[in-house]
């Protein structure tokens, strides 16, 4: 049943491409703003690059998650999911994984422009960078889907979603910046293993909490 829901998410997105387009364009806009606002020499930028990257990812997640719940409200499509005889935690999982897929696609596409526009060289082990980014995306997305489930029906959901999301996701952002920073500097794993543990705990803890709470959150 989870696969049907996931297929639906990808299918609707493939048909309208709302989420991916808006994410990519918004991401590019943020990168350009970073580039314009900091015309310092690349040597200095390198220290800020991880932080900037994850700030961009966070804002782009807010846009993407908001879109992904917006099209559920047209024609009251969400009631088809809720009234169906399925466990509502699966809806949370499908929102989580589909959001994660869109976020990863967006990051892969924006990987090159980010480094090129800020004129900094790519990390030494790109595969390691990719692997950790995927884990971090999962962690960001689990919190984002859970919070967007709450903010979805609120009147001020555009404002409520970031306000609820940013403090809750702050440990993930701290760990992400530390991980990306040390990968860029090529530090050994022993230095940043604690941050990876924090990311994994967030994925497990919020995944479970989200799965159980979503049943209460989705009811109108």
């Amino acid at each position: 049943m989870f696969l049907t829901l996931l297929k639906k998410e990808l299918f609707v997105e493939f048909r309208t491409r709302e989420i991916t387009i808006s994410m990519i364009v918004f991401g590019l806009a943020i990168i350009l703003t970073f580039a314009f606002s900091s015309n310092v020499s690349p040597v200095i930028i390198v220290n800020f690059a991880p932080g900037m990257f994850w700030i961009m990812v966070l804002f782009v997640t807010v846009i993407g998650v908001h879109r992904s719940f917006a099209y559920e409200k047209e024609f009251d499509a969400f009631s088809m999911l809720i009234s169906a005889p399925i466990d509502r935690g699966l809806i949370f999982l499908s929102k989580w994984i589909s959001g994660f897929i869109f976020l990863t696609i967006m990051e892969i596409l924006l990987f090159i422009p980010f480094y090129k526009f800020l004129m900094i060289d790519f990390p030494i082990q790109p595969w390691l960078a990719l692997g950790t980014t995927i884990l971090i995306n999962l962690a960001i997305m689990v919190v984002a889907s859970l919070v967007s489930g709450i903010a979805m029906r609120a009147r001020l959901s555009e404002v409520l979603l970031p306000i609820l999301l940013f403090p809750l996701v702050s440990p993930v952002i701290i760990s992400a910046t530390k991980i990306s920073g040390s990968i860029m500097r090529g530090e050994p794993y022993a230095l940043w293993d604690i941050w990876l543990l924090i990311i994994l705990t967030v994925i497990v803890v919020f995944g479970l909490v989200g799965y159980t709470l979503f049943d209460f959150i989705t009811e109108e």
Partner: peptide
């Protein structure tokens, strides 16, 4: 339950919506 709104996805076609709704059940 069939309400006022068709409870279907505007982006999908009639066939896709119905296949999805039936698979969910």
């Amino acid at each position: 339950y069939i309400g006022h709104a068709p409870a279907m996805y505007t982006a999908l076609s009639a066939i896709e919506n119905l296949t999805l709704a039936l698979n969910l059940r």
